[in-house]
């Protein structure tokens, strides 16, 4: 069985005949940090969302640790989703729930409906939630409502929620784009640190090329729905960036 993520000939068309992803081929090892860079609208977000099936792929194959995720439906799809954590650009916390409830919602794929409703989580889940809140630097905030937190704090909760799933893969869709530069770096440090120590591979979409270089071991450059660069940060040259983003005055 092949460990890690294997994507073959992935195509996504929101409008028939206008593919956003044009046959993506990509293999990602079962650990390490991969940054996906590219201009807005080039399909980075679509690529990530195809992996956990928030977006339906039009065709292709996405194998996570051997299992093809594309044909999954219903219960099997939910079982696959709970193995994949996701961190969102706008945090996507449930604003009116407490921080603790948001973190524990990472267990919703594992607990029964009644337990979820009555907040009857297992002791070990609650203990882990407190550990994660500690790890992301919010040990005192468990009972506060999510909408009372700052952007950086919310993203910390978002990371804790994703890790609460004990995922086999962590996806992050522009996790720093809504944050100020300093908080962005703190969040990247936290996310890469935690995913490395948990040995979870991390795929992060990111606008900021410097952050990508600084934190990733591998950079995927996308343009026009295709992968145009794939390699370690030190191989990423100005010529590649020209190819990815077009023009050169900005460099």
């Amino acid at each position: 069985m092949m460990q890690g993520l294997v994507i073959r000939d992935l195509v996504k068309e929101y409008v028939p005949g206008k593919p956003v992803l044009r046959g993506i081929k990509l293999t990602i090892e079962a650990q390490g940090i991969t940054a996906v860079i590219g201009p807005s609208g080039t399909g980075k977000s679509t690529l990530l969302r195809c992996i956990n099936r928030l977006v339906e792929p039009t065709q292709g194959e996405i194998r996570l640790n051997g299992e093809d995720l594309v044909p999954l439906k219903g219960h099997a799809l939910r079982m696959a989703r709970r193995r994949i954590g996701m961190v969102f650009q706008e945090y996507n916390l449930v604003e009116r729930l407490s921080v603790m409830e948001n973190v524990l919602s990472g267990r919703l794929g594992y607990v029964s409906f009644w337990r979820a409703w009555l907040r009857r989580y297992a002791e070990e889940d609650i203990a882990r939630a407190f550990e994660l809140l500690e790890a992301v630097g919010l040990p005192e905030q468990a009972t506060r409502r999510a909408d009372a937190l700052s952007g950086g704090q919310r993203q910390r909760v978002g990371i804790a929620r994703a890790l609460m799933q004990r995922p086999e893969l962590l996806l992050a869709d522009e996790p720093t784009s809504s944050l100020d530069p300093r908080t962005a770096i703190e969040i990247m440090e936290l996310m890469t640190g935690l995913s490395t120590s948990a040995r979870v591979p991390l795929i992060v979409n990111i606008h900021n090329v410097d952050l990508a270089r600084r934190f990733a071991q591998r950079i995927i450059g996308m343009a026009g729905g295709e992968i145009v660069f794939d390699g370690p940060p030190e191989h990423l040259e100005a010529s590649h960036l020209r190819q990815i983003y077009g023009g050169e005055d900005w460099l």
Partner: peptide, 29 residues
Amino acid sequence: SMKQVEAIRATGAGLGAVLIYGVLPQVAS
């Protein structure tokens, strides 16, 4: 906000849990 619903869906939650966690808190009051 469908973003909150999407996030709950992404955890592998079933329909009931999505409603209780993603939808209800937003409309309860």
